[in-house]
């Protein structure tokens, strides 16, 4: 991380958070480029055999949610021993992860936002319909404004998935054999809220959307508020798990 060369004690938590985000993007740059290429070239290839009426970027954006969780969990699991052994405090690490999460979610969200809007123009030019699979029927995302509103939610969703991955990563490090079980309560909450935002068929394990039945009557504002509250709650939980986390003993 080149940014490390000029670290000072007061600013290193923020600089490291930004550094993690840059490193993550650099590390996964070919994956991201491949996903973007597939999102644009996939429909072109498919159009040779069938009509295009589904947004490929919708699927790309949803896969990116799960990817974001893995990035957050994987990075934190690795960073806990490395950073503490390198002389960071747990509070500094939790702040750095917060900065990382915000920047990662914003960057990925911006990419997806731009991708979905570019796809609208692309589909329009090709005479295709940009739709999503909503409760068994395919419905068009809508006007430019509706498309922008549809895509604008992704940064927030990525933040929620990032926080979910981070809390599971921290728990998995802290409680070696059982920490990952936090997945069981967290996944249904985040996943159900996610499905409620778009009112679509679940994108992922259907059982995890079990709480969706209680959210059917919630308005979009309420659901988004719920996402914000859950993301904040998961971030606080991650910090709490980190605050007195012991470093594991080395194994021979």
């Amino acid at each position: 991380m080149p940014a490390l060369q000029h670290l000072t004690l007061p600013n290193r938590r923020f600089a490291l958070g930004a550094g993690f985000a840059v490193e993550a993007v650099k590390y996964f740059k070919y994956w991201i480029l491949a996903a973007v290429a597939i999102a644009f070239l996939g429909p072109l290839a498919l159009s040779q055999y069938r009509d295009i009426d589904l947004s490929t970027w919708y699927y790309t954006a949803n896969i990116a949610k799960w990817f974001t969780s893995f990035v957050a969990g994987g990075f934190l699991f690795t960073l806990v021993p490395n950073m503490i052994a390198a002389g960071m405090t747990r509070r500094e690490l939790s702040v750095a992860m917060g900065v990382f999460g915000l920047l990662w979610s914003a960057a990925l969200g911006a990419l997806v936002f731009a991708g979905i809007l570019a796809e609208r123009a692309y589909y329009g030019a090709m005479g295709w319909s940009q739709g999503i699979d909503a409760q068994g029927t395919i419905s068009a995302i809508g006007t430019w404004g509706e498309t922008a509103a549809f895509a604008a939610v992704y940064p927030l969703m990525y933040l929620a998935y990032f926080a979910a991955g981070a809390v599971i990563g921290a728990a998995a490090y802290r409680w070696e054999n059982s920490g990952w079980l936090l997945l069981v309560p967290i996944l249904p909450v985040v996943f159900s809220l996610d499905n409620a935002v778009y009112d679509t068929e679940p994108f992922g394990p259907a059982w995890a959307g079990v709480l969706g039945r209680f959210m059917e009557d919630w308005g979009r504002g309420v659901v988004l508020t719920g996402v914000v509250i859950v993301a904040a709650g998961l971030a606080v939980a991650t910090r709490q798990i980190l605050l007195d986390i012991p470093l594991r003993s080395k194994k021979a």
Binding site: R12, P81, N82, A85, A86, G87, K250
Partner: peptide
Amino acid sequence: ALIREGGDFDDADTVKAAIDTGQIRP
């Protein structure tokens, strides 16, 4: 600094990157 047997490194890092991580200490 506590240096444990084998160090606390990210195994996926290069040796150079592992050294650079030390720069977290001012």
